[in-house]
Write a protein that binds this DNA or RNA. Structure first.
Lengths: 166, 166
DNA sequence: TTCAATTTTCAATATTTATTGAAAATAATA
DNA sequence: TATTATTTTCAATAAATATTGAAAATTGAA
């Protein structure tokens, strides 16, 4: 397969997968573009390659830096900022796991804990407590999984995990 | 905490979390409502409780049935259809894992495999292959995790998992 | 079968989310 | 310092997604 075709298809596929998981398309596409790029790219190149506006490119690049998976890179003699993606994919996975945990799971864990103080003098209250308690287990499982990824050593995770679950 | 307040907050929180993970709000809310309900609910009750239209309620209930986590329940003497959510939350988690795997992960695995046939006679091609190969590992990890959930026995999963990753 | 209750469909509409683009702010050079 | 390149911001706009509501289809009772 020709490189250009593969590149196109990859950026496309990655963008689609991302939206299904609550990440916006442009973000996934810029990330994909930077991942496969052999050198740091400036904003204009990103704009041109993905056919997006300056504002969009700028804000999304900033978001990616907030996620800790893209960083600025100074090119000697160049005035424009250039960007590179973290190329170690396990590091990327760990970083994403860490952020989603912090941003999304932790708040839910806290809310569920609070809801456990529901009045259980009625059947509805009892059923409610049961559901919340069960749900806490599942959410804690998800939390542990993400945390395992966060804490895992590079290759250790894969081997250990597959050892147990294959 | 009063039941009504807890209920309200739960439906709200669950709806918000869902959108962050690419599931629509109504779907999460109807599911939440059915989860905590002690009896099967008909469409009108769902409409009234969540203040949504008939069309929305109907289509979303159908979606939930497609996901295999809600089913129709006949109430003797009642003509209207009633709905119940699967109350075993681990069964729900397994079902969701199964569906997301089927609908989202599997297609991506296949695409990545195809992209490995990229022409590697250029540096870009080589870098590309490297990224795709690494990414395959991560996606396979996610796939294995979901599959582990799918295949797991009720409580086995929790204990095994925590044993390894705590 | 007829008729009313119930469910389903889907074009129209509303809402939410993403993107643009140009003005303002900032940074670098001379 | 003034000038120009570059980045950032954000109100306006577009695009995507979700929801409505009423007509059509289906179902069950009589």
């Amino acid at each position: 397969m020709q490189y250009d075709e593969a590149k196109e298809q990859f950026i496309q596929t990655w963008g689609t997968l991302a939206t299904q998981w609550g990440i916006n398309r442009t973000m996934a596409q810029i990330h994909a573009l930077l991942l496969i790029s052999t050198e740091p790219l400036d904003t204009d190149t990103v704009m041109e390659q993905l056919q997006i506006s300056r504002g969009n490119a700028n804000m999304t690049l900033r978001d990616l830096m907030d996620w800790g998976i893209v960083s600025k890179r100074l090119i000697p003699g160049e005035r424009k900022e250039h960007f590179v993606a973290e190329k170690d994919i396990w590091k990327v996975a760990r970083q994403i796991a860490k952020e989603r945990r912090r941003r999304e799971i932790t708040p839910v864990v806290e809310t569920l804990e609070q809801l456990k103080s529901v009045d259980t003098s009625t059947p509805e209250g009892q059923q409610f407590l049961q559901v919340i308690t069960d749900l806490s287990q599942v959410v804690n499982f998800a939390d542990s999984t993400l945390n395992a990824v966060v804490k895992a050593e590079e290759n250790w995770l894969i081997s250990q995990f597959l050892k147990v679950f294959r």
